[in-house]
Amino acid sequence: MILKRLAVSVLVLLAVSLLVFVFTLLLPGDPAQAILGQQATPERLEALREQLQLNDPWYVRYFSWLGGLFTGDLGTSAATGGSVNALLASKVSASMVLMVIAAVIAIPVGLLLGTWSAMRRGRASDQVLTGFSLVLAALPEFVIGVVLTTLLSTTVFQLLPSVTMAAPGMQVWDYPLQLILPSLTLVLVVVPYMIRMTRTTMIDVLDSGYVEMARLKGLPERQVIFKHALPHAIGPVAQVVAMQLAWLAGGIVVVEFLFRYPGLGQAMVDAVNNRDVQVVQALSMIIAAFYVVVNLIADVIGILANPKLRTESRS
């Protein structure tokens, strides 16, 4: 079962790579022209095209690019002329830092508040939390970001930096304070969904026959929740968490732009502006791989949390 899911994931990634490659081919603009500028002579352009293998048929180029992906070589940036690996390494790690911080805060908070809300269903505290998360969920991430900036770093209080300082050769985490606003924005965007979905799932589970049975067996309420109810919520909740994490990979583009954060999102925006096809391809593959991996993990958790699926996978 798990192996099957793994194989499917690999297939999905291959399909994505093909799509990404074909669509970037369709982009207007000529990489050679982009590198050499408008003044380049036709001979020089031709020579560069030869060098970049742009004259080969598309499938040859696809496979050499794919081969590069497998060996960890993402190609050469048309804008800088340097390797894509070197260009993206710091950006990817900067974004990962942001995402990990957001995930580490959002997942426990979302699950705990969702469960708590489900257990207090119908009471005032539940209604306040539900209403609050609904409002947050309705706000786009840039609005949340702007409100936080107004609140914490400009007009009201001036506690935190509103943009990221990243001089060349410096890492973003050298100034931990500047990570707070972007990660807080991400947390506030994903947490409402997690709360709402966890609450719904837990309510279903708490209404189930086996939870009523556990209570009628005279088990302490803590045991009822943690031993009988939670395991059944893990699978569905893992799916929601995965979707939110996957959203982080894409949603980070806007948030990074807002805070001038030197991460994946900014790299993507720059690459598109510069017609830097190789970088766009590499970034698309990284984000796609992140989606696939996160969803795969969620599926595996779902399988492991469900004895029925687990025992089937064994036989």
Binding site: G209, Y210, K217, P220, P307
Partner: peptide, 24 residues
């Protein structure tokens, strides 16, 4: 009441497929 439930007064549910915990 919890001390009595399941110990002194026990309950057999209508549909065991729903009332047995599938993950235990």
């Amino acid at each position: 009441m919890r001390r009595l439930r399941g110990g002194t007064i026990a309950y057999v549910p209508q549909d065991p497929a729903l009332s047995l915990n599938g993950s235990l």
